[in-house]
């Protein structure tokens, strides 16, 4: 009797903890308020650079078009995910969302109706995006055309279809810490921001554990392709052996030092990085070459 009460007591506490841990938490209401107490103003021109650096179009553009109508499929061990429509369409895109809704989606991984997103959407890295970059990106998104294609539901089986469980995943694996803790120069710091926060390079180039979390001990050292097609190469200098200049040229032109060219999904990535500034490409390259 006494033990039973204890056990059920633990059970209630455990459920309470689980409920608390898995509850979707959107951004605080003041997340987009600047240091001077007024709302941050988004600059759509600056936001276009954030858009390219964050690689939004690589996943959200419909096949063969520039419209952010979604529909691209992403096969994984947990099911097949479909990128949603993030065009400005009011019914099927993000046209009716507030800035706070959009920032919560990108930075906290929580939808406007309070559900967790699957981390196929790399909010675990966008969480390190600066609030100013977020409002700039939002201003740019709002400048893009609408497309009325409905988003397709993900094809994910039990238990992964219980979105609430993603709260536990986030609790275990999402982190606001940088993987490379020490950056000696402003260029390396910018490179770290572009790679670890916006570019989400590690989502493909770093291996994952059985629960789909990145193994940061093998940071950027290559991984299996979740779709089963070949492997994704290491971009650590131990394996790649390219100079920083080689990497910067590749991210601009798509040419390797041997004058082979970029292939596979990386073609879409180079489409984005080729639109960044020379300084930003150099910063990415400097960060990669300096990886410990």
């Amino acid at each position: 009797m006494g033990y039973g009460r204890w056990i059920s007591g633990f059970g209630v506490v455990g459920l309470g903890v689980a409920f608390f841990v898995t509850a979707p938490a959107p951004l605080p209401d003041d997340a987009l308020i600047g240091a001077d107490g007024t709302a941050l103003i988004g600059d759509p021109i600056a936001g276009e650079m954030v858009f390219h650096a964050a690689g939004c179009a690589s996943c959200h553009s419909a096949e063969g078009t520039d419209a952010l109508a979604g529909g691209k499929s992403f096969v994984s061990d947990f099911g097949t995910f479909y990128a949603p429509n993030i065009s400005t369409d009011v019914d099927h895109g993000i046209g009716a969302w507030s800035d706070h809704d959009l920032a919560s989606a990108m930075i906290a991984g929580v939808s406007p109706n309070g559900a967790h997103y699957y981390p196929a959407f790399p909010y675990t890295t966008y969480s390190k995006m600066t609030p100013q970059d977020a409002v700039d990106l939002i201003a740019h998104l709002r400048s893009l055309p609408a497309d009325a294609t409905p988003s397709r539901d993900h094809d994910v089986g039990f238990p992964f279809n219980i979105r609430r469980l993603l709260g536990g995943w986030k609790f275990l694996f999402a982190s606001d810490d940088w993987v490379v803790a020490d950056v000696a120069t402003p260029e390396l710091e910018r490179g770290r921001y572009l790679v670890e926060a916006l570019g989400h390079c590690a989502e493909c180039h770093t291996p994952r554990n059985a629960l789909g979390a990145l193994n940061t001990g093998d940071w950027m050292r290559g991984a299996a392709n979740p779709s089963g097609d070949g492997t994704i190469p290491s971009v650590h200098s131990d394996d790649l052996g390219w100079s920083a200049q080689d990497i910067a040229i590749y991210l601009d032109s798509g040419f390797t030092p041997d004058f082979d060219t970029v292939g596979g999904e990386m073609v879409d990535v180079v489409d984005n990085t080729s639109q960044l500034s020379d300084e930003d490409r150099a910063a990415i390259a400097a960060y990669l070459v300096a990886l410990p």
Binding site: D229, I232, T261, V267, D268
Partner: peptide
């Protein structure tokens, strides 16, 4: 890369 995107093994 138009060809390497679609038709070359990673």
């Amino acid at each position: 890369s138009a060809c390497h995107r679609e038709y070359r093994q990673r």
